[in-house]
Simulated assay, not measured.
Amino acid sequence: MPFKSRSNIGADLLLAEKLIQLGARPPIVSQLCHLTRKQSIAFFKAVKGQSPKQGMLPHDYQWVIRSAFNNIHASLFLSIIEDIRHRLSTPNLNATLLVAAYEIYSNVASRILPNRQCIQPLSSQYYPLDINRAWYLIGLLSAGDLVFIFCGRCHARYLGMIHPEVAFSQCPICDVWTDRSGRRRWVSAKSKMLTLNKPNAR
């Protein structure tokens, strides 16, 4: 596999391998590790022993607000990214930053945010936020489509959305109710009435 001759190619390949192991797809590896599209696909096959998944990368800009569970995971990951950026004064995303932030997120998520349906909680494929969607959300945060909001009740830092078609700022901890199946849903006028009508509601 011919690579361009440069001094940091070894470091780029090590980061590319780590990204692929975490589940990153070739377009992301190519962008962050200075590889061509063909090189990133070939390297993916070498690392994984199989061809990469076909199709578009995650691009649902409303994913963060589709459920409180999604919002908690996205808020955790992007908080980690922002804290690392602030401490290291690195405004731009690079492979090292993405790998470090996602590894911290995976470790924390497996310990304090377990999904009851997870069979293998240490595997990133069982998190609602995989590394490809995490990369996409970083772009939304950088563009200002996502903003951090502090809840005055529980003091959590969570993500709100600023977009011409939707303005959303509900706390994923306080502004939710639990339905009969145990799922946490965003509070709405209807859900508030259902909560008030529950026999044991407080």
Rank of each mutant, 00 (worst) to 15 (best):
L140Q: 00
Y102M: 10
S40Y: 00
W63N: 01
I81V: 09
I119H: 10
N132S: 10
R37F: 11
I138W: 05
A100L: 13
Q125N: 14
Q39G: 06
H59I: 06
S89Q: 15
Q117V: 08
A156K: 12
L122A: 15
R85S: 08
G49A: 08
I149L: 03
H86K: 15
H59L: 08
C118S: 11
I112Q: 09
D60Y: 14
I28E: 00
A100D: 12
G23L: 09
I81R: 03
R133N: 06
Y61S: 04
L32P: 00
A134S: 08
L76E: 09
C118H: 10
E82Q: 12
I112G: 04
V108L: 13
V64R: 00
Y105A: 03
T96I: 06
V47Q: 06
Y127W: 15
A100S: 11
T36S: 15
S142P: 04
R87I: 14
A143V: 06
L57Y: 04
L137R: 00
L129A: 09
L35V: 08
Y102R: 05
C33H: 06
P26F: 01
N132V: 01
D130M: 12
P121T: 13
A95D: 04
L122W: 15
A46Q: 10
P52R: 13
I41P: 01
H155R: 13
P52Y: 11
S75K: 05
G152S: 09
K53I: 13
T96P: 03
I65C: 06
C151R: 04
S40G: 02
N71M: 07
I65H: 05
R85G: 07
A42W: 02
G144E: 06
K53P: 01
V147W: 01
L93G: 05
Y126L: 07
F77R: 02
A74E: 02
I131E: 00
H86L: 15
S79G: 11
I65L: 07
I131P: 00
R111A: 13
P128F: 07
I41C: 03
Q50G: 10
A143E: 10
L141I: 00
S40W: 00
L22C: 09
L98H: 02
K38E: 14
D60T: 13
S40D: 02
S110Q: 12
A74D: 04
Q117P: 04
